[in-house]
Design a protein around this nucleic acid. Structure first.
Lengths: 142, 142
DNA sequence: GACATATACTTGACATATCAAGCATATGAA
DNA sequence: TTCATATGCTTGATATGTCAAGTATATGTC
């Protein structure tokens, strides 16, 4: 029976931790799910406050069809708005709606509180380096 | 508009990287999906070569019902076997089947090769520390 | 201008995984 | 021994997210 080396164990740990963390933050954000939070947050920091769907997909690591699936109900309940692109008829933009801004602000506060409880002080030091490593790993894995 | 602090950005990066990596490794493992790989690997390193379903669920970070969903087709195609517990009538054990052992060994080799391509030498140094951080984060988030 | 190739997006079909409810069993206190 | 509580697991219902196929549009070459 073969043993898995360190990189394989990292991938397994990544999947496990994400499953736990994702589930943990899928409620408790003031009515937003974790995916909705992710999308709204990324829209809020986008240039001109809007993004193409394909750019949003790349930003959060999902496929274009995955993003389409998530945005449908969000548009229905007034978290985001969709619009056409002036320069590219294929493309469609997404912007955060006023209802979404309110929900997002509340969710950020709640998530900060939850994470303050979860992540001890002594580990906060490494967080930036871990984020950077994960970001690079994501790019390498594309 | 509120900005997200470092811990929130870490969680977002974790979700993104896992989405990319999970999709990347969901094929190319000799016929196993990433979930099947994860399950078979954990079974292969278990004491006595078997685990209770609830323990497997905890090990890989999914819920008990999630594990039930995944094991059904795996048992059908001969990757695992299920059995009763001698001491606890509620519990059911899972063991890797011979067909699963073969597939697992091949998948480990393929994954090692893929990860050698993805992860540069200079980053391998940190992998153990990153794995440890993720493991602890997962536990803290439960 | 024609045409091959690439891109943006949607949708049908399907696998994944959760939640809540329910059932059977185990545990521990009174 | 009884009983309340906890645990292990399954299942119906549903949300998530992918894949493949298709459509419309953009790009770049000839």
């Amino acid at each position: 029976m073969k043993k898995a080396n360190e990189p394989i164990r990292l991938i397994l740990e990544l999947a496990k931790t994400q499953a736990i963390v994702g589930r943990r933050f899928d409620c408790g954000l003031g009515g937003l799910g974790f995916n909705e939070f992710t999308i709204l947050y990324n829209l809020s920091i986008a240039s001109d406050g809007k993004m193409r769907r394909i750019d949003l997909a790349n930003k959060i690591g999902l496929t274009a069809s995955g993003v389409t699936r998530l945005l449908l109900p969000m548009e229905k309940i007034g978290l985001i708005k969709s619009g056409e692109s002036e320069r590219d008829a294929r493309a469609r933009f997404v912007t955060i709606a006023p209802g979404g801004v309110l929900k997002l602000n509340e969710a950020i506060e709640r998530m900060e509180l939850l994470l303050n409880e979860i992540i001890p002080m002594d580990k906060k030091i490494k967080i930036e380096k871990i984020s950077q490593f994960l970001s690079e790993l994501g790019m390498l894995a594309r």
